[in-house]
Simulated scan of single mutants.
Amino acid sequence: MPSFDIVSEIDEVEIRNAVEQTNKEVGNRYDFKGSDARVEQNDKVLTAFADSEFQLDQVKDVLVTKLAKRGVDIRALDEGKVEKVSGNKVKQALTIKTGVDSDLAKRIVRAIKDSKLKVQAAIQGDAVRVSGAKRDTLQEAIALIRKAVDDFPLQYQNFRD
């Protein structure tokens, strides 16, 4: 029986490279000379530091640009609140969302069931497995999910006949 998995994965190597490129560009830019602007990566959390909120926005813009150039979907970034560190210095945590959480998985399963397509969807940990009798109905299910979920980066893997 043909099937495929709906997952959400981010390439961590590309994220590390984008963070390094961001720090290099921020270190070389004239408007950041003498400032403590940088981005640090700790597992799935990126922390942006700057001397002011304006500079923090500039650092985030550079980071988003570098991530987009490297093919990382920026919808996977979840911005935390801006925190004051000391004096005028600020920081902000950017969390990288990976895996299909339970609410999104339930929304995907509900959309597939409501569409009346002849496929079955099952939640399996961080993924949703969709199986059906025909390859064409599975492709229709992929098109349906692409339209229904546009606020979260999803990939469709393990397409098997």
Rank of each mutant, 00 (worst) to 15 (best):
L77G: 05
L144C: 13
Q55E: 15
N88S: 08
K44D: 14
L56E: 12
D136R: 15
R129K: 15
V100Y: 04
T65N: 11
R135G: 10
L117T: 11
Q139Y: 13
K24R: 05
D31T: 11
N28H: 05
T65E: 12
K106M: 07
A93N: 02
P2W: 01
Y30I: 11
G132M: 07
K60P: 09
N88Q: 04
E12P: 00
D103V: 09
T95S: 06
K66E: 15
V85R: 00
V39Q: 08
I112T: 10
V13Q: 02
I6L: 01
L94R: 00
M1D: 00
I74E: 08
N23I: 02
D103H: 05
G87Y: 03
K147A: 15
A148L: 08
T98L: 05
V119R: 08
L46I: 07
V72H: 07
A93F: 00
N88F: 05
N17A: 03
E12V: 01
G132T: 07
V82F: 02
K66P: 07
N158K: 14
K118F: 11
F4T: 01
L138T: 09
G71T: 09
E25G: 00
D73K: 05
R135C: 10
E9Q: 05
A127C: 14
N28Q: 07
S102F: 06
D43R: 13
V128L: 13
T98Y: 02
L104V: 10
Q21T: 02
E140P: 10
R70C: 06
E12T: 03
I123T: 13
D114E: 14
R29M: 08
A133H: 13
L144R: 13
V13H: 01
A105C: 06
E14Q: 04
R38C: 06
L154W: 03
D5I: 00
Y30T: 08
F4W: 00
T22P: 02
A37G: 12
S102I: 09
Y156V: 06
A143L: 11
V119F: 08
E53D: 15
R70P: 06
K116F: 14
D36M: 11
Q155I: 13
V62S: 05
K97Y: 02
D61M: 12
T65Y: 11
K66Q: 15
V100E: 04
A105K: 04
P2S: 02
V59Q: 06
R38S: 07
V26I: 12
D103M: 06
E79V: 04
D73A: 07
A133V: 14
T47V: 15
Q21W: 02
P153Y: 04
G132S: 10
G80M: 03
A37N: 10
I123G: 07
V85A: 01
K134A: 15
